[in-house]
Design a protein around this nucleic acid. Structure first.
Lengths: 215, 215
DNA sequence: CGTGGTATTAACTAACCGGTCAGTTAGAAG
DNA sequence: CTTCTAACTGACCGGTTAGTTAATACCACG
């Protein structure tokens, strides 16, 4: 692993990965050229093919890194000894934070959904499945424990996660719309976004007094 | 407008448009080749350039068609003489129906968001802005009329629209995940989806007895 | 000192892709 | 029957792109 001869130029590989992440994030897989990544990373193109077998492997390496980071954090929260409603609040907070700190992730994720995940193998698919399983697992636990209303688990998952993804992802488009048309589109900082999503989760999932009275 | 000479082969232009919509929907703008569209539409490539100035114009023609259809339907509902909560229910129903009847629209829309709408001009951006303005306008009306809670208008819009888009858009990925891993991901038909979204809208926006008591 | 594996490069290739162009076909108009 | 023109075609082109190759610079270690 560690370079034994010819002192590896500090972080050639990681510089390639960082630049590639920017490019794939901004342009998508097909529109991103290896030549451009090489130029921007100040590296010969053959260097990319020395460190990675092909364009696709370079891409999936980035995707896998991003997904595992989020998966680990999710699992940590899911395993904490706390009630489901508190876990869900923490999950929302963490997801917003994770997305805000890596802005390449969102466009890559969205395009992969649009493409039916054609660039991903079973390993990356399993990571996505894990993210879904963790969030909807917490909701399912809450329903079984009687603290959440019995809603459709998959739809409940999307009710919480989708607005977060879409609101953050559409920020550049909102900016462009503001530039051409005078449409009032209010923005929201991270704290406002987290508070709103937690409020939605509470309103949708918590059992009302009227419902409690029936039992 | 009407062909004066050589009876136009019935629907050459519309066959190009239909095939192109499928290709752009399945692969995205960059990964779609004009040669492939021509081949699949059983048309000479030069024919495409006879009917459309370039690849981009072919693409935006499709996007504009889809957006105007939805915009028209939205406006019709928004102008009906009904209370905001009823309008919102109808809006949700119509959006689900519109997305289900044109399955190319969603992946194209998602990729355009991921790309920061680089392939769209001010005309197409204005159409998107109109969709946003209509939905969040109905919510804003409800808030001002005192029938909805005072929530963040943009976030409320995404709370309703985003889960719908993402749930439908992720269907192919869910199918692939099911094929490789044994993860329980329940599906939902249109009626269930509509009912869930209307429930979410009601839970998030309607004023509770406790809140009413304060006033 | 030299040897062997690592890191790096310039130059190259085969395939592909968007777009063009010179020319053909066939129906309608006069 | 001639003329006009919208609709259509095959062949081509300049430029780009993923991926390759053969050679070289560099350094640890024996």
């Amino acid at each position: 692993m560690s370079p034994r001869s010819r002192a590896a130029a500090p972080g050639t590989r990681s510089r390639i990965l960082a630049t590639a992440a920017e490019e794939f994030g901004a342009r998508g897989f097909a529109a991103t050229t290896v030549d451009r990544i090489a130029r921007r990373a100040r590296v010969n193109k053959a260097m990319i093919y020395y460190h990675f077998p092909n364009k696709r492997a370079l891409y999936t390496t980035i995707v896998r890194d991003r997904y595992t980071t989020i998966t680990d954090r999710l699992q940590t929260i899911a395993n904490e000894p706390q009630p489901p409603d508190r876990k869900l609040d923490r999950l929302i907070e963490m997801l917003v934070q994770s997305i805000d700190e890596a802005n390449n992730f969102l466009p890559i994720f969205l395009r992969e959904i649009a493409d039916g995940a054609v660039h991903l193998g079973s390993e990356e698919l399993a990571l996505i499945a894990g993210i879904f399983a963790t969030v909807s697992g917490v909701i399912g636990d809450g329903i079984r424990a009687g603290v959440f209303r019995p809603v459709h688990p998959a739809l409940a998952h999307f009710t919480i996660v989708a607005p977060l993804l879409m609101f953050r992802a559409t920020a550049p488009v909102r900016a462009r719309i503001r530039a051409v048309r005078r449409v009032e589109i209010p923005e929201a900082d991270s704290a406002t976004l987290v508070a709103h999503l937690q409020m939605v989760a509470r309103k949708v999932l918590s059992i009302t007094d009227a419902e409690r009275a029936k039992v």
